[in-house]
């Protein structure tokens, strides 16, 4: 029964688009021919994207095959850029720093995306359950986390994990010694440095990034929940469906498209995390802690900028992301689309 309801709500997915179009009643009040409508709707957005981003994208790819410095892109008397073929790309893959950075990036993104989605979804569901006053209270709290400027975020987390003045070491010291010994094998946390070792540094980074990005997931999930017509839940309640079944049969299928989008976007963002890592790691001095963004910054975007190399790194990064997200993107675009 519930299954049936949810499919119905999604617009009876079976009927193919052209067939449905035939069923549609004739338009009376719209002057535009049918085929023009989507393009007309798309136009403003497309203009902005095309005008601003398409050309720079092309330029980026073109640059990745050239040796480009600032002298080559100046407005006044630019110098010709030397064509170097795949040199920039070879340089990337031969660099000692590429593979460790790639590993850090992947490990970080995997853990962070999973945690962010999990925490965000749970909080979103919680917000939906809470009473109105309580939910507003919690939402304002998580919004404050989201709204904190990135620089302040990174620095505050750095302070919280500070070896001497940090709240974390202080709190760990408060644990009863036997418990601390049991869990961590030690009881004295005074002066424990968190930012020396790559592993602990990334632990702090994960906490900081999850903290900053779960509010967004929670709010999006909440918005998704709110847009589910409440009739569906009423129907389920009448059917005597249990909470978990309701979630599995109604909530999850309806939220799935939102999830997929959030997942893809989280992967993209966590792959590119920069500001927090840069500040937590103290700039570029610790190269074991590089991720792809920080490495490309050290390699290509800091002064003197090697723009060709920087562009090549950007192309590689985009390529990797496309491959990773391909499965999801295809699923999103193909299956649960135009009905």
């Amino acid at each position: 029964m519930t299954t049936h309801t949810s499919t119905a709500a999604r617009g009876g997915g079976d009927s193919s688009a052209p067939a449905r179009r035939l069923r549609q009643p004739p338009r009376r009040s719209s002057g535009l021919p049918d085929w023009v409508v989507p393009y007309a709707l798309l136009l403003p957005g497309l203009l902005v994207i095309a005008a601003l981003l398409l050309y720079p994208l092309y330029q980026m790819i073109d640059m990745s095959f050239h040796k480009v410095g600032l002298a080559q892109i100046k407005t006044t008397n630019p110098r010709p850029a030397e064509f170097v073929g795949f040199d920039n790309y070879t340089h990337i893959f031969e660099s000692d720093l590429f593979w460790p950075s790639l590993r850090n990036t992947f490990a970080f993104a995997a853990v962070t995306v999973a945690l962010t989605l999990l925490v965000g979804t749970l909080v979103g569901l919680l917000l939906n359950k809470l009473g109105k006053k309580m939910s507003t209270f919690v939402i304002v709290g998580i919004m404050a986390a989201w709204a904190t400027p990135p620089t302040a975020q990174a620095i505050v987390w750095k302070w919280l994990f500070d070896s001497d003045a940090g709240v974390v070491n202080w709190a760990l010291n408060l644990l009863p010694d036997w418990l601390s010994e049991l869990v961590f094998g030690r009881s004295d946390w005074s002066g424990e440095p968190w930012f020396n070792d790559t592993l602990t540094l990334y632990f702090v980074l994960i906490v900081a990034v999850v903290w900053a990005s779960f509010p967004f997931i929670a709010v999006s999930v909440l918005a998704g929940l709110k847009s589910i017509p409440s009739e569906l839940y009423e129907a389920a309640r009448v059917d005597g469906s249990r909470a978990f079944t309701t979630f599995r049969k109604i909530t999850f299928p309806l939220l799935k498209p939102v999830f997929s989008v959030l997942m893809v976007l989280s992967i993209i963002w966590d792959f590119k995390v920069f500001t927090q890592l840069y500040l937590l790691a103290g700039g570029t001095v610790n190269r074991e802690a590089f991720n792809l963004s920080l490495w490309s910054y050290a390699e290509a975007f800091s002064s003197p900028p090697k723009m060709g190399l920087g562009a090549a790194i950007a192309v590689v990064l985009t390529g990797i992301l496309l491959v990773i997200t391909f499965v999801y993107v295809r699923q999103i675009v193909k299956t649960e689309d135009v009905r």
Binding site: G69, K74, T75
Partner: peptide, 28 residues
């Protein structure tokens, strides 16, 4: 960097002395 790329730079600018050679190389 933006000033060089966009042609809207200063006429005179302060500099850290260790940065001079890098910017001379960029013909700035």
């Amino acid at each position: 960097t933006a000033a060089l790329a966009g042609g809207e730079g200063p006429d005179v600018t302060e500099f850290g002395n260790d940065q001079v050679s890098a910017w001379v190389q960029q013909e700035a």
